[in-house]
Write a protein that binds this DNA or RNA. Structure first.
Lengths: 220, 220
DNA sequence: GTCTATACTCGGATAGAC
DNA sequence: GTCTATCCGAGTATAGAC
């Protein structure tokens, strides 16, 4: 698929069905909120701000969501959904053919440079969601688990192929990659000059098993 | 030095000087606040909560700090100060003799298990401080730079000794370790069962150059 | 230096009209 | 379903007495 658009989070893409009007509207809201936050950033944005951006009143917006926290959690879910379509790193069906998750992974990370607001929202909620009562708690646990499982699977394949260090089990390696991704976001937010993708790529390099002849492996 | 106490962040340790009474009191406040947050956790604590814990009124506490944000930033500074005394991983003078920062580093990380409130405060502020206007912005930039520099130096030594992969430059490796530490805190807060130290240790393992007797060594 | 009291702001939630 | 209007709590910051 050759989807290559300027903004992954396009606005106003509502698919209007005859039934379940409410659901469609809700999706439209999420998509627009996503676009706005991606573009204009998130600094502890209020429901009112999102409402304005989406073209509703605060009360009107909260008609679709139980609370502020749920709203933002759903925005993150929608983000994953959109990203999945574009980068499909999570799709279990295709994971076989993506032996090189490396490039897909790096693409997502590079893309994040263009959506600072979402990175901020994600990081902020990551911390807040530590509280088991937080609406996003389950979301993060499930997301992390899924992501790690897919990653571990792909890493194990590389280990079997002798391309990746086998000194550490793939589950732990997956955990490390996840930590690096999250941690690099924090460093990047603090200093936009740091290159998240290059650093993660360097980790891939560092873990790559050296070729016998001494030359560097370009890593499929 | 054999300091080995139950609580690194002891309460009520004020050294009362004749002059600069205000400064001493301020230090005492910070030490107590540190102990309270470490013990009872931080979930977006208000100034009032800290004031109560410290034995002052909210107004009384704010007499010593310009704002809530400055207060919490200073608490983090004090934490570093205390940690430095106990683990001294930052001391430039001694870094030479700590060729194995590995164990010191892991000690700090293990210690963090015992102070969840500080981990939460640190992570939360890490995100908020992305805003250049935030009082903690400079703190984090400077702290990260210092930490990375010390780390990079130690890693470079290990590389020279042929113990650590030389496929990636020490500065980038230091950045990776920092990212992993931050990222693992997030994972740990979400699920206290994850072992931060073990994971970081695994990364050390993964980057360690294989011994000669085993498979072929690349290095250099 | 520390308190009590209060002022003020922000923001989320709700009621009720249309 | 969406609005306007309002309420209410939380929390910071400040004024002023002691």
């Amino acid at each position: 698929m050759k989807i290559k658009c300027r903004s992954v989070y396009a606005e106003g893409v509502a698919q209007r069905g005859s039934y379940a009007k409410g659901v469609a509207k809700r999706e439209e809201i999420l998509e627009r909120a996503l676009a706005v936050i991606a573009r204009e950033g998130y600094r502890g944005a209020s429901v009112k701000e999102i409402a304005d951006a989406v073209g509703l009143s605060q009360a009107g917006l909260l008609h679709y969501f139980d609370s502020k926290e749920e709203l933002f959690t759903e925005i993150l879910r929608k983000r994953d959904e959109v990203d999945m379509v574009h980068y499909a790193p999570l799709s279990p069906e295709e994971k076989e053919e993506r032996a090189d998750l490396r490039h897909g992974y790096l693409d997502v990370i590079r893309h994040n440079r263009d959506v600072p607001g979402l990175v901020q929202l994600f990081s902020r909620l990551s911390v807040d969601a530590a509280d088991p009562q937080h609406p996003a708690h389950k979301y993060f646990i499930e997301r992390n688990d899924t992501l790690r499982a897919v990653f571990a699977h792909a890493l194990a394949q590389r280990q079997s192929a002798g391309e990746l260090t086998a000194r550490v089990d793939p589950e732990t390696l997956a955990r490390i990659f996840q930590a690096v991704a999250d941690g690099m976001q924090i460093q990047w937010m603090l200093d936009p000059d740091v290159d998240m993708a290059a650093t993660v790529d360097a980790l891939f390099d560092a873990l790559t098993t050296p070729k016998k002849d001494g030359t560097r492996d370009a890593a499929s």
